[in-house]
Design a protein around this nucleic acid. Structure first.
Ligand SMILES: Nc1ccn([C@H]2C[C@H](O)[C@@H](COP(=O)(O)OP(=O)(O)OP(=O)(O)O)O2)c(=O)n1
Ligand SMILES: [Mn+2]
Length: 581
DNA sequence: CTGGGTTCGT
DNA sequence: ACGAACC
């Protein structure tokens, strides 16, 4: 008891072994999603292109020496047969990202996203429950072990990390089977080490790090730049101090480092350099900002600015409607043409916006509020740019921030859906395939948007009546390796809307069937319609894609080869055929 | 020939 | 409002 207390207070600089952290990182993420959309690309060298930058490529292409974030021209020189797919529109990547995080949240609520394809999961509790309920279970490490384990720590971390590796393996199995996504995983006792060890075996592999391997892992990093937390700027400063290796960073005098970097950063980096990290896995909630930007050669007329911003705003309103919250502020970002300096000098201005613009009125928002927002945007623009002089922009961005939850009626299913994270994709109402409802205004029309035409599936039968109550004897620890079952959490139970919405849950589970809209209860049908109509700017969604440069062709034709992974992709909510290259 | 985001700290 | 970090 007292020992535990001391241990907690000591906080051993983030080097205690009491946690089990899994870090998951999808393989060549954008490229993988593109291959899921069009499996014919699987065997070919594939690159995903944003303007002139090749942002990532599949592992076939990597054999040619093609690298991430490379100029397209350089990549083509290395690999003339490289197939290119446009990737400026992140919609599909974002959607897959959401599904991955939802799947991982079945293992622990402590899931933190980093970008679109990485997740940290703190599985300490699941590991503890598993060890408790299954103390004689196998202690095999799944996947690779980093370095040697000749000396075993006696704090119990060996067993914990073993179970962690088994959980990681199950996570990857489910990601592959349910979403078609392959990824790497790293298992360690803190975030830094989980992330670093994750990347030691790629692709589609996992690695577990025990305390005995920590020193090797750190010293095998090639450059100080490989330490998460040391970016472009900091590594340059370190370079000017003659520090380029991890070992040099470990050994440099702390006072000297503080002088160059400030105390907080210096102390943090010192600890990181020996693998100590006390950062906690912070559950990722809804985003703090939702924005879009577009880069270009030159814009020098106010009218062009307005046009660009209007397009950005239209696309933004779709993302906003799907998010379901009301923004309290809007921000405009600009990049001025700057000779000599490749470095983006960006300037931004933001202002508050009245929430009255987002009142749940049906048709009114579209033109009226839209115009007011555009006016605000232009006002902000004029705060940055003096129109009376010539100007030359190379980027425009618009973002919403300061979100507030939408307050629809208390018991309304709308307000409930907005809150329920597992149902948020449903807020994209065009995702519902409305069998038995003919051409509802919000679903049909052009049906050409990227976010249209997806299918809504059941997943969670156990959420409603059919599943027996979990027996108190059975701990949650068994769910991930024994029979797969999901039970309602406590907070699920006290809300009647939760039960109603289980009818509408987006699939991440096995029994995949399309929802037949006409089979939903009448009350829910009506409320869904109302919810649909009360969403801001819903009518704007019609025929408008979150797609600046369309990168897919919409073939309604469904007779082409049906490869398993493509079926999976389609089943999971795409309506897109393969691309015509 | 340099994406399109998001978060955090100051 | 901006720089720095991450993907
Ligand atoms: N500067 C960057 C870095 C990444 N990404 C995008 C493209 C990647 O597909 C995705 C994930 O980034 P990763 O660094 O994890 O790279 P990949 O997943 O593509 O490849 P890997 O297999 O090495 O993880 O984020 C980006 O747009 N800009
Ligand atoms: Mn990745």
């Amino acid at each position: 008891m007292e020992d535990d207390f001391d241990q907690t207070l000591d906080s051993n600089y983030g080097s205690s072994h009491d946690k089990v952290i899994v870090h998951l990182d999808a393989d060549c993420f954008y490229a993988q999603v593109e291959m899921l959309k069009n499996p014919e690309l699987r065997t070919l060298p594939l690159g995903v292109q944003q303007k002139n930058l090749l942002v990532t490529c599949n592992y076939v292409a990597r054999q040619f020496g093609v690298k991430k974030c490379m100029l397209v021209s350089d990549a083509k020189r290395l690999c003339p047969s490289l197939i290119l797919v446009k990737g400026e529109d992140l919609y599909d990547y974002r959607q897959m990202s959401t599904k991955m995080t939802l799947l991982l949240q079945k293992f622990s609520p402590l899931v933190e996203k980093l970008g679109l394809d990485e997740n940290f999961v703190d599985v300490t509790q699941l590991v503890a429950e598993t060890l408790k309920s299954d103390f004689a279970g196998s202690r095999n490490v799944e996947g690779h072990i980093y370095g040697d384990i000749t000396s075993r720590c006696d704090c119990g971390c060996y067993e914990r990390l073993c179970v962690g590796s088994q959980i990681a393996s199950e996570m990857r199995k489910q990601l592959k089977e349910e979403l078609g996504v392959t990824c790497c995983a790293g298992v360690a006792y803190n975030k830094l080490l989980a992330k670093l060890v994750c990347s030691t075996h790629k692709p589609n592999q996992q690695t577990t790090l025990f305390p005995a391997g920590v020193s090797d892992l750190m010293l095998n990093l090639n450059n100080v730049r490989s330490l998460p937390g040391i970016g472009h700027r900091t590594s340059e400063i370190l370079q000017s101090l003659g520090i380029s290796s991890i070992e040099q960073l470990q050994n440099i005098n702390l006072e000297l480092l503080e002088h160059a970097l400030g105390r907080t950063l210096a102390e943090r980096l010192k600890k990181l350099s020996v693998g100590a990290d006390d950062m906690v896995v912070k559950p990722t909630g809804k985003p703090q900002s939702i924005g879009l930007e577009d880069g270009f050669r030159k814009i020098s007329l106010e009218s062009e600015v307005k046009d660009k911003c209007e397009v950005l705003l239209q696309r933004l309103m779709i993302l906003l409607a799907e998010d379901g919250r009301i923004p309290g502020a809007i921000r405009v970002t600009v990049r001025k043409y700057d000779n000599s300096s490749r470095y983006s000098h960006r300037e931004s201005r933001q202002c508050n916006i009245p929430s009255s613009l987002f009142l749940p009125k049906v048709g009114t928002l579209s033109s009226n509020a839209h115009n007011k927002l555009l006016t605000s945007i232009m006002k902000l623009f004029h705060k940055i740019i003096d129109i009376s002089k010539p100007f030359h922009l190379t980027l425009l961005g618009v973002a919403f921030t300061k979100f507030q939850e939408r307050n629809t009626g208390k018991g309304s299913i709308t307000s409930f859906l907005v809150k329920d994270i597992s149902v948020q994709s449903v807020m994209n109402f065009q995702n519902i395939s409305l069998h038995g409802v003919e051409a509802m205004e919000c679903s049909s029309s052009k049906n050409a948007g990227k976010q249209s035409g997806s299918t809504l599936n059941y997943a969670d039968k156990s959420g409603s009546e059919s599943e027996p109550e979990p027996s108190p004897k059975k701990t949650r620890a068994d769910f991930w390796r024994g029979s797969r079952k999901r039970s309602l959490t406590e907070s699920d139970k006290d809300s009647p809307n939760k039960h109603r919405s289980s009818e509408l849950r987006l699939s991440t589970g096995e029994p995949i069937n399309e929802v037949d809209f006409s089979k939903l209860s009448d009350g829910i049908q009506e409320e869904l319609m109302e919810s649909c109509m009360s969403l801001p700017s819903l009518t704007d969604k019609l025929g408008i894609s979150d797609n600046s440069t369309p990168n897919t062709s919409m073939s309604i034709e469904d007779n082409f080869q049906t490869n398993a992974s493509q079926k999976l992709w389609k089943r999971l909510g795409s309506n897109q055929g393969p691309q015509d290259q």
